[in-house]
C-alpha cells in the first residue's frame, strides 16, 4: 500500500484503519473489499477473455468478431422451432394428406391431435367463431352442423385454406346483394316474412312469399333452407349470422352483406388446416372439447 495509508488514524474501538476523512465528526472505516468479491471479479475478467474468443464480441468497424462457436440467437430459435415441429411430426404428418374418416376413428392420433387442435382454434379462430364454435354477431356458428359451403372435412379444409372474400387468389366469393331497389314496403313485408321463417310463422301464401320466391330462392333455396353450398345461409333454422329479427333483416336487405373469413393458406400449414377442419367437424358433432 502507498504512503498515504500510514498516517491515517486508527479507530480505537475496532482497531481498523479509517479513511482519514472527517465529515462533521463522522469518520469511516477503511475496510478492504472482501476477498471473495475480489476473486469473483478476477474470475469474471478471466471468463470475459474466454467469452471474447468463443462468442460474438469485439466490434471491428462495420463488422464484429463472430467467435469460435459461431452462435446466432435467431438461428437457435429457428432450430428450436424445428424441434417442436419435428416432435409433432409423428402424428401431424398423418394430416398432410389425410384420410379423414380413418383419422377421426383413430383414438390414439386424436388423443394427441385433439388438444393441439383446440389450441390452434383458440389462437386463430375463436376471436370470431367463439371458443366453442358458437359464433357471434357477424360470424357464423360452426357447431350446428349446417354448412354454407359444404360439410365434408375436405371441403371445410378448403374453406379454411382459401377463406371467404379473403386474400387468397382462389378465395370463395360470397355476396348478399343489396335490395335497395325494392320499395320500402316490399322490404318491410319481406323482412317480417324472413323473421318468421325459423318459427315457421311465415305465411307461404302471402305476397312476401312470392317476393322471396322471385328474388331470394335462387341463393337461399326454395324453402329458405339453404344447402346449395354457395355461401348463402339457411334462413329457416335457428342459428343466425347477423340477426334474423325484422329490423336486422331490413338492414341486411337494404345494405347487403359481404362477410369476410380470412384466408389461412399463408398463416397455417396444410396439415394444421386439415387438423382444424376435423376439429370444426367434431365440434359440430359434439365430439371435440371446445
Amino acid at each position: 500500500m502507498s504512503g498515504a495509508d500510514d498516517d491515517r488514524p486508527v479507530d480505537p474501538v475496532t482497531g481498523y484503519q479509517t479513511t482519514g476523512h472527517n465529515w462533521n465528526g463522522i469518520i469511516e472505516l477503511n475496510t478492504p473489499m472482501s476477498r471473495i468479491a475480489v476473486w469473483a471479479l478476477v474470475l469474471a475478467f478471466l471468463y470475459s477473455v474466454v467469452a471474447w474468443i468463443l462468442l460474438p464480441a469485439w466490434p471491428t468497424g462495420n463488422h464484429y468478431t463472430r467467435g469460435l462457436l459461431g452462435l446466432d440467437q435467431g438461428a437457435e430459435a429457428v432450430d428450436g422451432y424445428r424441434q417442436i415441429h419435428d416432435a409433432r411430426q409423428g402424428w401431424m404428418a398423418r394430416f398432410d394428406d389425410p384420410d379423414f374418416a380413418a383419422l377421426a376413428g383413430d383414438p390414439a392420433v386424436m388423443a394427441e391431435a385433439g388438444p393441439a387442435a383446440t389450441r390452434l382454434f383458440h389462437d386463430n379462430c375463436a376471436a370470431c367463431h367463439g371458443d366453442d364454435g358458437g359464433g357471434g354477431p357477424g360470424f357464423p356458428v360452426l357447431s350446428d352442423g349446417y354448412w354454407m359451403w359444404g360439410g365434408d372435412p375436405a371441403t371445410i379444409a378448403e374453406t379454411i385454406r382459401v377463406g371467404i372474400n379473403g386474400t387468397d387468389p382462389d378465395t370463395r366469393i360470397s355476396e348478399m346483394p343489396r335490395f335497395d331497389w325494392m320499395s320500402r314496403e316490399e322490404r318491410a313485408i319481406l323482412a317480417d316474412y324472413v323473421a318468421g321463417l325459423p318459427a315457421q310463422s311465415a305465411d307461404p301464401g302471402s305476397p312476401a312469399a312470392q317476393l322471396f320466391a322471385d328474388n331470394c330462392a335462387t341463393c337461399h333455396g326454395d324453402t329458405a333452407a339453404g344447402g346449395l353450398d354457395n355461401g348463402a345461409p339457411s334462413l329457416a333454422d335457428a342459428s343466425v349470422i347477423y340477426g334474423q329479427d325484422a329490423e336486422t333483416v331490413n338492414t341486411t336487405l337494404w345494405a347487403g352483406r359481404h362477410g369476410t373469413m380470412p384466408s389461412w393458406s399463408g398463416r397455417l400449414t396444410p396439415a394444421e388446416i386439415n387438423l382444424l377442419a376435423l376439429h370444426v367437424l367434431r365440434l359440430s358433432q359434439g365430439r371435440a372439447t371446445p
Partner: peptide
Amino acid sequence: GKYSDYWHVA
C-alpha cells in the same frame, strides 16, 4: 390479415 376489417371495427 389475421382478422377481417369487420372484426377489428367490432
